[in-house]
């Protein structure tokens, strides 16, 4: 094999080595990029599909809801509480010292129009659906919502007051399309 050529051809061999390394490097890099590009569709296919995304926003007509009435709608397979609050409920919600709250949040930060409270009806503790939607349901000491699973209690702004839940009921993205209709999501 290559014996006497070594010393004299050292320069040429050096260049050849560099060329070979570049070839391996370029191919390796391209192969890695190819592998990543090939893996991407496999991973992305597990993300929500088009039909799931199409159902990811719901429009709700608010006109049949009376003052003081609370309704539940489905959004992204989850319950969403829509409450048309009475003046007393709004007052109670606004007149709260934020220092008292486990998860401090002003009522104004949780509603777009004070009369309408829109929130995801899933307890932030371990995921049960709190009671309080029906007039006969227990509503807890703050007249909001009461979770029967472990006793979390929410006020008329959906903020956690007592019990093991760490955070206020989640406000979903929503927008008023008109005064009497809202799109959630």
């Amino acid at each position: 094999m290559a014996t006497s050529a070594e010393t004299g051809a050292h320069g040429a061999a050096g260049v050849a080595v560099k060329r070979r390394d570049f070839l391996y490097l370029a191919t390796g890099a391209m192969g890695a990029v190819g592998a990543a590009l090939a893996a991407w569709p496999l991973i992305e296919s597990m993300n929500p599909a088009a039909d799931v995304l199409a159902l990811s926003s719901s429009e709700v007509d608010l006109s049949p809801i009376q003052v003081g009435q609370r309704i539940t709608v489905k959004w992204r397979s989850q319950p969403v509480f829509i409450a048309r609050r009475t003046p007393e409920e709004i007052g109670e919600a606004q007149k709260v010292d934020l220092e008292e709250l486990r998860d401090p949040q002003a009522d104004s930060a949780r509603v777009k129009k004070p009369e309408w409270l829109v929130m995801v009806g899933i307890c932030t503790h371990l995921g049960c659906v709190p009671l309080g939607q029906a007039p006969t349901d227990p509503r807890g000491d703050w007249h909001g919502w009461f979770c029967p699973c472990h006793g979390s209690q929410y006020d008329t702004s959906g903020r956690i007051r007592k019990g093991p839940a760490p955070a206020n009921l989640v406000i979903p993205p929503y927008a008023f399309l008109t005064d009497t209709s809202v799109r959630i999501g």
């Binding site: 992305e44 296919s45 599909a49 088009a50 039909d51 799931v52």
Partner: peptide
């Protein structure tokens, strides 16, 4: 058909 139309890259898979 849902895989072909709605699943991301479903047609490719």
């Amino acid at each position: 058909e849902r895989i072909m139309r709605d699943v991301n890259y479903g047609w490719l898979l």
